[in-house]
């Protein structure tokens, strides 16, 4: 449906914007390495079903490989910056101080409690949706502490937030057309979108209406 395809395109766009940001600035200014590492973990645990070869569609499989591949590629690019621009890299690391154990631990516990089946694949899948819902926090934390962000970085976060927000009408659509109701995706999706809501508001006020981007 239209919401699902727009969501996936917005997700693709966010990654293109992120890669463009790193490529253009040749440094990692404003990008949280911790959030990016969490995304690698999110995609690797969610798409374990690639190993079972029970694929749903070519689209699905290609997208899964794309998201795993690009998330690892982002880490590689960031590590290159460490060599090329060690001062900027150190500066980023000094500001990237969110304790991710507070995200990893609860996600693991929630996955144990809320899952569709107590199997490795299902537990990893559930862990990945819980973790994805909070994975942006180190990035938002970094932004709110520095108070300022580059335009490309804000576009990246916006596109990334929009992706999960668009999944919500997609779930409503699928509920009415397919009688499908996936409670875990829906709940974590709502949580994820809620975490972005403050950011969306500031983005709307500052970026759309002109002017710089500053977080309180």
């Amino acid at each position: 449906n239209i919401f699902r395809i727009s969501a996936d395109l917005s997700h693709l766009a966010s990654i293109v914007i992120l890669l463009e940001t790193i490529r253009k600035t040749r440094q990692v200014d404003g990008i949280s390495l911790k959030t990016q590492l969490l995304y690698v973990l999110v995609f690797c645990t969610r798409y374990l079903d690639l190993l079972t070869f029970r694929w749903t569609s070519l689209y699905n499989t290609l997208m899964k490989f794309f998201f795993i591949g690009t998330s690892i590629y982002v880490i590689k690019l960031m590590q290159e910056c460490k060599i090329k621009n060690p001062v900027a890299y150190k500066d980023m690391m000094a500001r990237d101080t969110f304790q991710i154990k507070y995200l990893l631990g609860p996600s693991a516990i929630l996955a144990m409690v809320f899952n569709y089946k107590f199997t490795i694949l299902e537990l990893c899948w559930s862990f990945s949706v819980w973790l994805e819902s909070v994975a942006i926090l180190p990035q938002l934390f970094m932004l709110s502490r520095s108070g300022k962000a580059g335009t490309l970085t804000t576009h990246y976060i916006f596109a990334l937030g929009l992706y999960r927000a668009l999944y919500i009408p997609n779930w409503i659509w699928r509920y009415y057309t397919e009688n499908r109701f996936e409670k875990l995706s829906i709940f974590t999706g709502l949580l994820q979108t809620a975490l972005y809501s403050d950011f969306f508001y500031i983005y709307y006020k500052k970026v759309i209406k002109g002017g710089g981007f500053e977080l309180p």
Binding site: R4, T56, M63, W125, E178, N179, R180, F181, K183, L184
Partner: peptide, 10 residues
């Protein structure tokens, strides 16, 4: 019947 156990989303 509500179906949930197919992870066909990204």
């Amino acid at each position: 019947e509500v179906n949930a156990l197919t992870h066909d989303e990204l």
